[in-house]
Design a protein around this nucleic acid. Structure first.
Lengths: 321, 321
DNA sequence: GATAGTTACGGTAGTCGTAACTATC
DNA sequence: GATAGTTACGACTACCGTAACTATC
């Protein structure tokens, strides 16, 4: 058994059980992957993948278990590599953040540019996706952090640090009648066509919950994954926008007006998530601290160590944005 | 980087930073270990061990971290091997129990012989040592289980399952005056020379605590790691024995009489401990269930998975022995 | 001078890519 | 017939053990 074989297994499973694809993403040839897989299966005395004739189609029961441990090995190996880099090339490296559009566009820029100034030799990478996609990127080790809102408490392998809470506002063109309604109620909002986030996304479920509880069926005419897209369609007059407070900027969005609706919806919490059991470079801790000043290096390091208990973080006293 | 190199690092650290010794315990040659270590250090770009000239004397800061992750890798690799065995040689394997003399001699025989009958092709191995030794054997992966009393809550890497509670009795030759004293008090016991367990051991601290609280200084004339040794010296008239209830057998110990002293000392809890993040063979779960029927396979498996929270087990309703 | 570790060297074995072959859809 | 996977083969590389050398205690 060797690390390469475990990586091959991992990659085959993450490429739809297609050995040729896996080989490509491993920058090697298909027969090589095939042979190494066979060697590993022979050594273990049991097959890892289910085969229909020659085609690989899924994991055996043993394979599922092997895959889980193989993933851990790869994670640990990458941690060791990172330790090497930490002590040999202190100021160089990569920081890979997986996040949603809203965070990338409205919450992160300040921290990211500060970080880039402080660590000019660290390459930054921002990946976008929906909450489950970005979480899985971190679980698989393809990204260092995930920054997203809710729905991410489900990943046992992620350590989630709540950072701030936020709520929503209604946006509309300056002359829109909804802006005259005081105070805004769910009923009023439901009178108009609504444009808001896609269901898979950032706090959308909170919106649904509020309307459901009130027994109101809102008229959602358009959903998007992206605050800018929502705002654009609101400008075109397609309806009123319902979006995160931070996504509205009085100066930039001069064609729109916003009205706070914090009283109508639950607050959502945005968290930063890291893979448990992973070694984090010092600059990664610094990034966390820049984004969420209440999380100090040592506190997180302790929680990340394998075998440490799942901490429950206070969500009450988080800053609002 | 490869698994072998990580194993070498691990073994060097566990052999007092002596490369020659490590090579021996790895069944290979010293130059081989030396070379591979150098290769790994070169690849990581940082040294793992502190060197005085050519002598290796300790771990660098980076090395400490590397070692921790290397240990995880080796654990995961052995888990994968075990999965292979589980699915290819279901009924064959090894079960390695690290425990104290008292457990091995008085608590385990019934379970062990039952187990041997049910799994005739599983090789059994019982290691003895003091609580910290045997815990570390499990942490290092040299044993599958540790069965011991207290002082083992400190190992974050071990999942401890409390199994039963027990207390102590005083033993003495049949004509000894202490047997006439009713009821027995700490003061009375302290009037006689006492023979009991070594300090490193099984519930010895509970004994100290009781005397300390009462402000009494007991006259402990002899300590041993072994109930049989204690009983032997009691038979010789050197003093009264203070030992675990289960270590006294009315039929076999006909030269001695026992008096219960549960009212004088706190109960001690004996637990079975397994390394977190390790894959356990089915027969291992069966062993646990035979020794502690309230622990079912699925419950433990869930707790063992990496990243799962540290469970707190009830100690209140445990059986007494 | 005994113990511990590194460097040098050669035979062996494992690895990887190309090519040919086979099976599935 | 196109896609997916295995087997075969040869060049190359890595590995391991012996031996010689060097440093520490």
């Amino acid at each position: 058994m060797n690390i390469k074989q475990l990586r091959y297994v991992f990659e085959i499973a993450n490429n739809g059980f297609n050995i040729s694809l896996a080989a490509e993403s491993l920058f090697t040839t298909q027969p090589g992957v095939s042979t190494q897989l066979k060697l590993l299966e022979d050594e273990l005395g049991t097959s890892i993948f289910i085969r229909h004739g020659k085609r690989v189609t899924g994991l055996t029961e043993a394979g599922e278990r092997v895959l889980a441990y193989a993933g851990e090995v790869l994670l640990n190996v990458s941690s060791i590599r990172n330790i090497g880099l930490e002590y040999s090339k202190e100021d160089r490296g990569t920081l890979s953040i997986a996040t949603t559009h809203t965070q990338a566009r409205y919450a992160l820029p300040k921290t990211v540019s500060e970080f880039a100034k402080r660590f000019p030799r660290v390459r930054l990478r921002i990946h976008q996706g929906n909450p489950s996609q970005i979480c899985e990127m971190v679980v698989r080790g393809e990204a260092d952090f995930v920054i997203a809102t809710e729905s991410i408490a489900d990943y046992e392998q992620l350590l989630m640090l709540p950072v701030y809470r936020w709520n929503r506002c209604v946006v509309a063109p300056p002359d829109h009648p909804i802006l005259a309604e005081q105070p805004l109620t769910l009923e009023t909002i439901a009178d108009y066509p609504i444009i808001t986030y896609d269901f898979a996304f950032a706090g959308r479920s909170v919106i649904n919950k509020a309307f459901n509880l009130a027994g109101i069926k809102p008229n959602i005419v358009l959903t998007a994954i992206d605050s800018d897209v929502i705002k654009h369609y609101v400008e075109l007059g397609m309806g009123v926008g319902l979006l995160a407070h931070m996504a509205f900027d009085e100066h930039k969005d001069q064609n729109l007006r916003a009205a706070d609706v914090s009283h109508l919806f639950d607050y959502s919490t945005t968290s930063i998530g890291v893979r448990r059991g992973r070694y984090l470079r010092r600059y990664m801790y610094d990034f966390i601290e820049m984004f969420a000043p209440n999380y100090k290096r040592e506190a997180i390091a302790g929680k990340l160590r394998p075998g440490s208990s799942i901490p429950v973080f206070e969500e009450e006293n988080l800053p609002l944005r």
